[in-house]
Amino acid sequence: MKRTSHVFTSACQRLVVLASAVVPGVALAELPTLEEPTQGSGGIRTTAQGYMYDGFILAGLLLSTAAFIWVGIGCLASFNEGRQRGEWTKFGVTAFVGVVLILVVIWLATEAGPILSQ
């Protein structure tokens, strides 16, 4: 039974390849157009600067997300340790410093946006 299904699958694949070779329009899909950057368009230099701006903004968002996840993992580990030992001061300090760290990273990423657009 396996042999029959393998032969059938192989025949179907060959038929698709043959059909795409005979009628090339079947195999070619219309590709989407490239989006313009959020800032600057027209020349090569301004378009490249716009894409770099978008890349740096995306990197700032990824950095903020990484900080959020890192603080969350640290707080969960500290919470687990506090629950086992009964000492909650380390959890409180970790949560407070983590929240401050996240706020600072988000604030710096927000302040970098207008600076990069100049």
Rank of each mutant, 00 (worst) to 15 (best):
I73M: 15
I73V: 15
I73R: 14
I73F: 13
I73C: 10
G74Y: 05
G74H: 09
G74Q: 12
C75E: 13
C75I: 02
A77Y: 06
A77F: 07
A77N: 12
A77Q: 14
S78G: 02
S78Q: 07
S78P: 01
S78V: 00
S78D: 07
F79N: 03
F79Q: 05
F79H: 05
N80T: 13
N80C: 10
N80L: 15
E81L: 04
G82V: 02
G82Q: 04
R83K: 11
R83W: 13
R83Q: 09
R83L: 14
R83M: 10
Q84W: 07
Q84D: 11
Q84S: 12
Q84V: 08
R85G: 04
R85S: 15
R85E: 12
R85T: 14
G86R: 06
G86A: 06
G86W: 07
G86H: 08
G86Q: 08
E87F: 08
E87D: 15
E87S: 14
W88I: 02
W88M: 06
W88V: 00
T89V: 12
T89F: 13
T89H: 10
K90Q: 10
K90E: 07
K90F: 05
F91V: 00
F91H: 03
G92C: 05
G92T: 03
G92P: 00
G92Y: 05
V93W: 10
V93S: 12
V93Q: 11
T94V: 05
T94Q: 11
A95D: 00
A95T: 04
A95I: 00
A95C: 04
A95Q: 03
F96D: 05
F96Y: 10
F96C: 09
F96W: 12
F96R: 07
F96E: 06
F96Q: 08
V97R: 12
V97T: 15
V97L: 15
V97K: 13
V97C: 12
G98W: 02
G98E: 02
G98I: 01
G98D: 03
G98V: 01
G98Y: 01
V99Y: 14
V99N: 11
V99D: 07
V99W: 15
V100M: 14
V100C: 11
V100A: 15
L101H: 08
L101G: 02
L101S: 09
I102W: 10
I102T: 03
I102V: 09
I102R: 06
L103Y: 08
L103D: 07
L103E: 09
L103K: 04
L103Q: 10
V104M: 11
V104R: 06
V104G: 02
V104P: 02
V105E: 07
V105A: 03
V105G: 03
V105K: 06
V105Q: 07
V105R: 07
I106Q: 09
W107F: 11
W107V: 03
W107I: 01
W107K: 03
W107Y: 14
W107L: 08
L108G: 00
A109W: 04
A109C: 14
A109Y: 01
A109T: 06
A109S: 14
E111W: 01
E111K: 01
E111R: 00
E111T: 00
A112E: 03
A112G: 01
A112I: 00
A112R: 02
G113S: 12
G113A: 15
G113Y: 09
G113V: 13
P114L: 04
P114H: 06
